[in-house]
């Protein structure tokens, strides 16, 4: 594993997590959570865990984001915090 790549990916992951919980629009929050999942998937591929990485890519980034967007369209996009 290359530690520079590891460090840069970890910093972007933390930034995505903070953005996903602090943004005021729930649809943006769902998209940022999908980006967070894809970055984690890159991190796991880089660590040599390819099986976990493709499970996360299909299930964490794909299905979860689709469920999230569906739930938000059935309810409301607005949030107070």
């Amino acid at each position: 594993m290359i530690w520079q790549l590891d460090f840069i990916l970890l910093v972007i992951v933390v930034i995505c997590a903070i953005a996903a919980i602090s943004v005021k629009d729930l649809l943006s929050s769902a998209i940022l959570l999908g980006a967070y999942s894809f970055l984690l998937c890159l991190l796991w591929t880089e660590m040599g865990a390819v099986d976990v990485a493709f499970t996360e890519a299909t299930v964490g980034a794909g299905i979860s984001t689709a469920f999230f967007i569906g739930a938000i369209y059935h309810t409301s996009r607005r949030t107070k915090d």
Binding site: M1, A17, A20, I21, L26, S29, L33, Y36, S37, L40, L43, W44, M47, G48, A49, V52, E56, G60, S64, F68, A71, I72, T79, K80, D81
Partner: peptide, 28 residues
């Protein structure tokens, strides 16, 4: 701390993936 229920679910997802990331890093 978040009042919105969707934000709480996002937080739960981040918490669980952080634990998974810790375990995977012990393997490398």
């Amino acid at each position: 701390a978040k009042k919105n229920l969707v934000k709480k679910i996002v937080g739960m997802n981040i918490f669980q993936t952080a634990i998974i990331l810790f375990f995977i890093s012990t393997a490398s």
